[in-house]
Amino acid sequence: MISAEKEILPILNQQELYTVEPTHLHVASSDIVETIDVNVFYGDFHALKDVNLAIKKNSVTALIGPSGCGKTTFLRLLNRMNDYIPSHMVRGKVLINGVDIYRDKIEIEQLRKEVGMVFQKPNPFPKSIFENVAYGLRIQGIKDKHLIHERVINAIQQVGLWNEVKDNLRKNALALSGGQQQRVCIARTLAVEPDIILMDEPTSALDPISTSRIEELILQLKQKYTIIIVTHNMQQASRISDTTAFFYLGELIEVGKTTDIFTNPRNERTERYITGRFG
């Protein structure tokens, strides 16, 4: 582990940090992600409204809610993936490890190494399995062949793909099945050893067996990583997550322990949604 490299917080920002109001200092708390009064706009469209959400280290958080309610928008807020959309605008604070990623001077590339992302549709590069997983290391400029080899193999083992691909790591990743491709994509993210992994409906394009494999994997990954996952599948949310957050029309309606949300929701709209009685 290269902990110096992994530090999001550039020295020059620490000073700024102490000038922030004390309530917003969360370096010592176990909240690895915290959003404070976050509003997101696409042009005139108000996509997220005053979202306040704190996420604990080494937990799995499920984001649920009907289509178009802002789950993806929230997820992509956390690694600034929406920066490329010209009309996208953020107000409020998004703290990751205590750093305001929209206001403090941060390196966006560094942020994304710490906040990895797995997409809905498996999107391996048209390269070999090995090169896919090594990609993040190569772009960091790591040249050490042994280190790359070790990390790649380690990542492939972590996603439980080793026995399936060990004999043809040089095979094109696009030749794998959808479920295997998605696990390559997860391995690719793990290889750079992020703190947080964002997953946007990672199993919605997969068959049930691949899905349960990835669910098991998520439960294992929890030991080392903080995982935030968008899902439309209520069973999936209850199986794998510790915390569930319900979004509706851009608002965070309710957030709490998954068991509570599913057995005893406080908000009526949450209840209607999880019981499938939503219009």
Partner: peptide
């Protein structure tokens, strides 16, 4: 563009 996103998402310039 999913490939472009994958690359940016890994922290590539």
């Amino acid at each position: 563009s999913s490939l472009r996103e994958a690359s940016y998402g890994m922290g590539a310039t």
